[in-house]
Amino acid sequence: MREIGSLPAIFHLSIIAALFVAQFILPPFHHSMLTRIMVLAAYASGYNILLGYTGLMSLGHAMLFSTGLYSVGLTILYLGFEPLAAFTVALISSLVISLLLGAITLRTSGVFFLIVTMIFSQVFYLTTLYFNNITYGDQGFVISQYLHPINMGFFQIDFADRTVKYNLSLLVFSVAFLLSLYVSRSPLGLVLAAIKENPDRAEMLGYNTYRYKLIAFALSGTIAGMSGAVYALVFSYIGSSLAFIHNSINPLLWTLLGGAGTTTGPLVGTMLMVYVIDVTSSFTESYLVVVGIALILIILGFPKGIVGSIRKRWLTWLP
């Protein structure tokens, strides 16, 4: 019933395997595109746990992504942390920040939740601008010169190496991907689905719905922070623009396009959108108009998204 089941398990593992194999086949351009897509798809997968599984639409995830991003960036730049230590700091700080943000914003519901998450995220963005003597604001900073290779005895992890970048991205994506598969099939996931459908009834069954929503928020936010941390390590750039509202809207768009509430939707949506924007930005400056029209079209004619529609039509076993 709500078990992972062998078919979905094989399906998900083969997607990861295919992404792993792809690095040996793809030409350099697509190799680097996929590196970017996988980090962002991890971010979208985390977002999906909140939107797709729990039915909570946040416009504040840029703040959580950036918590991971800046945790890595600032500890490496100012404190001389090693990448692994910086990553650990990022995980802990994004967990703490998401718990705090969730605890406050989940006191509201519906559209108010969305407005309030957006306001707080904007505070975070403005803070990164206000302290631009530390964060370098919009211009940002680069950490590649401080990312020393990690010596693993018989081989080295060199963050400048594109194979390392690719596999780091694959790693963070796989964690987010498998975690969302696990959650969707777990007793916890069933409670989240119940809260999404009928929170009143879930409460009357004896579930503390506030606490479950907070768990979903923290899980989603920590995955966002983890993605931000890996983004910093892989792309070496840390700047305010990643904390801006556009970066909260992005995972919303990717998740809706791919299919909210499906495990593979965020990957499909991210991949499609990153390629579409890459293609369109080669002949128009204002690629955002594509984002805008895509959002309107999806909501008008395609509310289940790509994977959601496929699941409904053909593959009902798809998680």
């Binding site: 007793p187 069933l190 409670v191 459908e197 009928n198 009834r201 004896g206 579930y207």
Partner: peptide, 20 residues
Amino acid sequence: VSLFPSLTVFENVVLAVQRR
């Protein structure tokens, strides 16, 4: 009547049982 309409009948009951 207040249920979780898009979940299966079984999942609806599982929600009650697993809470306990």
